[in-house]
Design a binder for these strands. Structure first.
Lengths: 239, 239
DNA sequence: AAATAATATTTGTATATACAATTTATTACA
DNA sequence: TGTAATAAATTGTATATACAAATATTATTT
């Protein structure tokens, strides 16, 4: 276990732990979270620190707080945009989602950033490129191409990304958080590569998403292109 | 001035003041807000209280904070959801958008609400059904089917909807406001009807959106199905 | 004049404390 | 037993304080 771990402030650690516990079902929808005093004893921090973690969970919709009562778990939050804030995971649920790496993270020059324009700094620094195939119930549903500017992400190349959410890795290890972004949606027909991955015939319709994703770091954007076979699984999202 | 004024906590008051000042241009985009210490002196509260107000402004995108530097005003935040809160209009801009009514609003029984399930009340009350074609620069880009539960919308049938936003009509005439909702996206190939409307050959890929839209009235949802020809215009939205 | 170092400013994190407001649980009483 | 009063538990608000981390400013040196 010699992985690079960013030093998170206490309130972020507590947030991550509680968030994970909610996602894993340790606390289920409708459950009461331990009280703030219990949590502060448990994690050995003061109540204001706990409250900061709970504030964030509340803002993001994981919990709802009631004065005099407690914090009630609400399960995974509704996304702000469609299948955006949380990656494609939110669209189908974590259970049966498998990730297969087609192209391991590697450093490339940007050929282009899909339909988005790049800043000079981004172009000069090159990008980390990866391709992933997402399977639901062992059926290929998403094909992702992700491009991240090659700026200050130590040991990212070589990190095992299998079955891990890219956003989770970025948030936990590099404190890089998704803040919002822009996405463009269109319908195309499957090219040869997609026909192979999705096992569909020529002419099969596919949803394509080009996404430029803002982060909490000034000028750092993630770019991703997602192809979706919506035969059996539609893309669903709340707004 | 005999309006009812809720007793707001200090941090909310500060938030409201700063938000209003940003909206009114007292602080303009790019400006530095007064420092937290200055603000606490100004409003006669402590820094944690000021920080709570700034936390919220930051979360909502009004400001961006930089350690050691200050809080920079970012102007009003961006909209929520993709082409959702404001209908399809937001995706292309209002300028060149024309609407052609294919089926005038009429009362029908729900055959189905696309992929969404209906409540008993909704099913029993029937729905107002309409079909519209949206043209951008005289080229058909969207084909909408809209279904609204037939509940308390006097004189809606017969109302001229040409070149009017449905959401605007509902908000202004019936105080029915869109609050959020769910949408499902998939790719299909154009059937004969869409081939005719969009002027595309058989097998042409089309984006389909099924949307269930929440309103400010409990239990009242709008249902819409949108088909998009993304040949020349992609669906774009921020999140 | 330019580069460097030291200082000040500003936001970030964390603790400790106090009391208010709301809900829940307990107790007392009829 | 049922109801009302009381107490306890829990979140909300607010202050005061201290230091860390990042940036900006000023002073010093070369």
């Amino acid at each position: 276990m010699s992985e690079y771990e960013a030093v998170l402030p206490h309130h972020s650690k507590v947030y991550e732990i509680l968030r994970q516990h909610i996602n894993e079902g340790v606390y289920q929808e409708g459950d009461l979270l331990p009280s703030e005093n219990e949590l502060s004893a448990l994690h050995k921090v003061t109540r204001p620190t706990i409250r900061k973690a709970l504030d964030r969970l509340s803002n993001e919709g994981f919990i709802v707080r009631h004065q005099g009562k407690g914090s009630i778990v609400k399960g995974a939050p509704k996304g702000v945009g469609i299948l955006a804030m949380k990656g494609t995971t939110s669209a189908v649920g974590k259970e049966n989602l498998q990730t297969r790496i087609i192209v391991e993270p590697e450093i490339r020059n940007w050929s282009e950033a899909f339909s988005f324009s790049l800043s000079r700094v981004e172009q000069e620094s090159g990008c980390i490129y990866m391709e992933r195939l997402r399977l639901v119930n062992n059926k290929a549903v998403f094909f992702d191409i992700t491009m991240i500017p090659n700026i200050n992400l130590p040991r990212f190349i070589g990190r095992n990304m299998e079955n891990k959410s890219l956003f989770d890795v970025l948030r936990k290890n590099y404190r890089l958080e998704v803040k919002g972004g822009e996405q463009r949606i269109l319908a195309i027909t499957a090219d040869e590569r997609l026909q192979k991955y999705f096992g569909v015939p020529a002419g099969h319709p596919v949803v394509q998403l080009n996404r430029k994703i803002e982060t909490n770091r000034e000028g750092i954007y993630l770019y991703s292109q997602v192809f979706c076979n919506t035969d059996e699984f539609v893309l669903s999202g709340n707004f």
